[in-house]
Design a protein around this nucleic acid. Structure first.
Length: 815
DNA sequence: GACAGCTCCTGT
DNA sequence: CAGGAGCTGTCA
């Protein structure tokens, strides 16, 4: 095995061939990290994905510099998983590698400047910048390129460096810096020997002139005598703000106290008591048995459990079984803020054997989880989609909670994959089982269950036989005609809110639109405020008193007069959640009305504060966007109101109805969790719309039957496979031409009705990039592979056109 | 993805 | 004709 295929952390196709130096041949194994040179001197951390003896014919491979791991850091299953992802989602291995690894585990060399040895510099002939740089290099031997920006203007840097290299004064080198450092915690103690040799009164009298220092000294002494074997954390000294670091430093300088460091595991883990989980109800036992049977037949499970049916309870049971059989569990959540309940229950059971992994961890924290997973120190890992890439040793079960959630497949970060589908494949490589759980499964998963690819297990009653909420449709048009409305609310909905308030219960109002008004329009000339970066109207946010672009985040002040015709007749159109909140506050001035959306939750701990307020019953009405549909399980919410439910359907997306159903059902699930008397009032202009009618009937099978019929009729997934190709460029004409070309190439290989577009994207310009889209509708089944191959050929053909290389291309498989 | 080396345009 | 922006090709 003299050659290795190495994946580099760059967005490049495939892997690269390197020669394994003689002395490394016995040690090297697939899954290990190695240092390799790439392009001149630059050094990257690559992953060995394959070893072989086939000498490359067309080039002379370079040599691996060194091996970084004693044992493979990446299990075979993960390498298989990467290869699958790359093939299925048409993305590069390098992209996956970048996404999968914490950056401290893939060090790259940094470019440094240093003085050439033994040079004498003739300062006379240098300009100011050159002089600065030489002087800086004389003080510290190495300077990295970004540090130079601190004292030389950006534009001059290249010029300065080049001229000094020409003069033979400096040279460029590459160096790999160790980024990961174990976290050290500062502790303090009274200087050893001090107490034996010196009289305490003598010391204290020396400190008489510095009372604070004296206090601090006594404070430390106190703690140390009280608990001679304990450790005093330095940070605790400053907690109450009485002492400052200067006081402490003074004591160190006087040799009275000492500071020392100990390494600490960065990850806090639960230290409290552990306890067993409660017993299952009869219905749950039945579901549990069905899951067991499915697992015995090597089938994965779709657990469809209505809200509050106790899906978590069943997860816990299965997790327990899996851990008892000596295997580990991966528990996936769409976002980490939802962990609260499951965490609390698991912590009590598994204590230190529980781990977390999500996007909010720092890089060092990620490395520590990696290490613990690799050492098999974690039995249960709770995480978001990036946790799929941890180096699991013997995983036995993957739970995907809220499997329908779109956060499993964000469109913003590449590689674009659906964590739910990826989990099924990953589990296959490990021989593990999967439970997909949701109260509102995705149509795709439901279809798989129907086709018997997944075992369908249903929990159709709430825990403790609590009744599901009742739905009521309010015909808003009729209400308006008979003058039974006030603003955006029907009197019927207001009456129910009032009743709920009088019963000292809580109400939730869902309005899934951020801001106060969608558009600010000039009555006189029709001017509307567009974002300068995007082809999007800016939304008016009254609370922040500004206009915001919801796509690029751009802000602008709200115009007082029309910038075009200077008319003062500015009109606000389109209702946002802020406006609904304002309206409700005015209608119920004696009650506490709070708003929950990304804008009001931006401040630190805003979410936690509001959560607590609702839990304590201080909040009477919660007005919010889809954010309120997740994670807010409280006992006293009895009413859910959706004043403008139609807006949920008016979205140009074949999944709009499914999303609307899921959102309405999820919010509704918050109502009457304990009392069983929950009510959901839906105001709509179209009470006869199938989605609303089906929700009202609350017959799950019929709803999915309806969705599946619609999908089949219009040839959408799960009956076809969609691939969306998006092209972006600063110049519209260029990206337009490129997409026309790609469209024609695709049509050359694929049947005419498979290729839709190219078309301008719904948002024609985003962040100053013009976007065009091509949608491919491909048949599923055996032919899919064949067709996808043709897509791949087309994409390659496109990539080979050099003129289009500056165009950014994104491919979304299973769009 | 990153970077060197190239072309072509701008401006004095 | 320098200096820079943008394009192109290549890396093992």
């Amino acid at each position: 095995m003299r050659y290795a295929q190495i994946v580099l952390p760059l967005n490049l196709k495939g892997s690269f061939t390197y020669k394994v130096p003689e002395e490394l041949i016995p040690a090297i194994q697939p899954g290990m990290r190695v240092l390799v040179p790439f392009r001149g001197k630059k050094i990257y951390t690559g992953i060995v994905v394959e070893l072989h003896d086939a000498e490359p014919e067309s080039f002379v491979p370079r040599e691996i510099i060194s091996i970084l791991d004693e044992f493979p850091i990446l299990p075979k299953e993960q390498i298989d998983f990467w290869n699958w992802l790359s093939e299925y989602y048409l993305c590069n291995l390098g992209e996956i590698y970048r996404f999968a690894f914490p950056s401290s585990l893939k060090l790259e060399s940094e470019t440094y400047l240093k003085l050439k040895p033994n040079v004498t510099v003739d300062f006379e002939n240098l300009d100011v910048n050159e002089m600065y740089l030489i002087q800086a290099l004389e003080i510290r031997q190495l300077i990295n390129l970004t540090d130079i920006e601190a004292f030389i203007p950006k534009k001059e840097i290249i010029k300065t460096i080049n001229s000094l290299i020409d003069l033979q004064y400096i040279e460029i080198d590459e160096k790999i810096s160790e980024k990961y450092k174990a976290k050290e915690i500062a502790y303090v103690k009274i200087n050893e020997g001090l107490l034996n040799n010196q009289d305490l009164t003598e010391i204290l009298s020396k400190l008489n002139k510095a009372p604070k220092q004296k206090d601090l000294f006594l404070h430390i002494l106190d703690q140390q005598t009280e608990n001679p074997t304990g450790f005093i954390k330095k940070s605790t000294l400053f907690e109450d703000g009485y002492f400052g670091n200067s006081h402490f430093k003074a004591l160190v300088d006087k040799n009275l106290v000492e500071e020392y460091y100990l390494q600490k595991d960065r990850l806090e883990s639960y230290e409290g008591e552990t306890e067993d989980i409660e017993e299952l109800s009869e219905t749950q036992k039945q579901a549990n048995k069905e899951i067991e049977e499915a697992f015995n037949h090597h089938k994965n499970v779709l657990l469809h459990g209505v809200t509050s049916s106790g899906k978590t309870h069943i997860y816990l049971e299965k997790i327990e079984e899996c851990v008892n059989s000596g295997k580990n569990v991966l528990f996936l959540l769409p976002e980490i803020s939802l962990t609260k309940q499951i965490t609390q229950r698991l912590e009590k059971k598994y204590g230190k054997k529980l781990g977390f992994y999500h996007q909010k961890l720092t890089d060092f924290e990620r490395v520590e989880v990696w290490r613990r997973i690799k050492n098999n120190d974690i039995q249960i890992l709770i995480g978001t989609r990036n946790a799929l890439f941890l180096p699991f040793q013997n995983i036995g079960l993957i739970v995907v909670d809220e499997e329908h959630d779109s956060a499993y497949k964000p469109r913003e970060v590449s590689p674009y994959f659906n964590a739910k589908d990826a989990a099924l494949v990953l589990a296959g490589f490990y021989g593990a089982k999967v439970i997909l759980g949701s109260a509102t499964p995705s149509v795709e998963s439901y279809y798989l269950a129907q086709k018997n690819k997944l075992q369908y297990v249903s929990l159709n009653e709430r825990f403790g036989k609590v009744k599901l909420p009742e739905y009521e449709l309010i015909n808003f048009k009729e209400a308006q005609e008979s003058k039974k409305t006030s603003g955006n609310f029907s009197l019927r909905l207001l009456e129910e809110i009032k009743k709920t308030l009088e019963d000292k219960n809580q109400t939730m109002i869902l309005h899934n639109r951020r801001g106060y008004a969608n558009v600010v329009e000039c009555e006189s000339c029709g001017y509307v405020n567009y974002c300068s970066n995007c082809d999007v109207v800016m939304t008016y946010h009254k609370a922040a008193n500004e206009m915001k672009c919801h796509y690029c985040g751009q802000r602008a002040s709200k115009p007082k007069t029309c910038p075009k015709c200077h008319s003062e007749n500015l009109n606000e159109r389109g209702v946002g959640v802020e406006q609904i909140h304002e309206e409700v506050s005015k209608l119920f001035p004696d009650y506490e009305v709070d708003r929950m959306d990304v804008d009001s939750m931006r401040k630190k701990f805003a979410y936690e504060k509001l959560y607590e307020k609702i839990e304590e019953g201080e909040t009477d009405i919660i007005v919010g966007t889809q954010m309120i549909s997740k994670g807010l399980d409280f006992d006293h919410i009895e009413l859910v109101g959706i004043p403008k439910a139609d807006s949920l359907l008016y979205v140009q997306d074949f999944r709009a109805e499914e999303r609307a159903y899921q959102l309405i059902t999820q919010v509704s699930g918050r109502a009457g969790r304990v009392s069983g008397k929950g009510k959901v009032l839906i105001q709509t202009y179209n009470p006869d719309h199938s989605v609303f009618q089906l929700i009202k009937m609350n017959e799950v099978a019929k709803i999915y039957e309806y969705f599946l019929q619609e999908r089949q009729k219009f040839h959408y997934p799960p009956f076809t496979k969609l691939i969306m190709i998006e092209l972006k460029h600063r110049r519209e004409d260029k990206v337009n031409r490129a997409s026309q070309f790609l469209g024609s190439v695709l049509r050359k290989y694929l049947p005419e009705d498979c290729v839709l577009g190219p078309e301008k994207a719904q948002i024609a310009k985003l962040n100053n990039l013009y976007q065009f889209q091509i949608l491919l509708k491909l048949p599923r089944g055996k032919n899919y592979e064949k067709f996808k191959n043709l897509v791949l050929i087309s994409l390659n053909e496109f990539d080979n056109i050099t003129a289009y290389q500056s165009i950014k291309k994104d491919v979304f498989v299973d769009f």
